[in-house]
Amino acid sequence: MKLRIMYFAKLRDLAGTSDETVVYGGQTVSDLMGTLMKTHPGLLNAGKIMFAVNEQFVSPSAKLKDGDVVALLPPLNGG
């Protein structure tokens, strides 16, 4: 399946891109993260990440389908 991945805040720097299209053979968001971390090793230092698919928050176990837009956001803790 083909997915569009969007990186927010510092994840953009760690991935080296703000968004990209990937061809993915797995099933879940969690599996996808494993794949992305291989492509962009900087993401290994990302810490906690929240996931949204098609502009809606999902859990890491959420299943993906062709054409999904996956957003990766770091939860910010400062104030």
Binding site: K48, M50, F51, S59, P60, P75, N77, G78
Partner: peptide
Amino acid sequence: SCLACIGYPEEGENISC
């Protein structure tokens, strides 16, 4: 929804301003 609904972490490494 609340923060826990969306997977906002209960704890973690805090990166200060």
